[in-house]
């Protein structure tokens, strides 16, 4: 399985949950505490992220940066 991860800018996230619904791996969730703007922010809860970028594509505030392991030579992906 391809390994990836996301880095979420917690201080600008508004906790709209659209990324949580969009994640096919169900590895995103809302935090238990608030950010400086008073929102519960999105965070990575499990290490099953594949770097599919679905969360970043639906994010209205562009807070998500997606990382993925480089393609291997000969890989069909």
């Amino acid at each position: 399985m391809i390994r990836g991860t996301v880095v979420i800018a917690h201080d600008v996230c508004k906790g709209c949950e659209l990324c949580i619904v969009a994640c096919p791996q169900e590895c995103l969730g809302l935090s238990d505490h608030l950010n400086a703007r008073g929102y519960r922010f999105a965070q990575l809860n499990a290490d099953t992220c594949t770097g599919c970028v679905n969360c970043a594509i639906v994010c209205p505030d562009s807070v998500i940066t997606v990382y993925r392991e480089p393609k291997k030579k000969g890989s069909r992906l």
Partner: peptide, 13 residues
């Protein structure tokens, strides 16, 4: 939790 980004490339920013 935040995974390490070591060895990974940025695919979306």
């Amino acid at each position: 939790m935040e995974n390490s980004t070591n060895g990974l490339e940025v695919v979306y920013e």
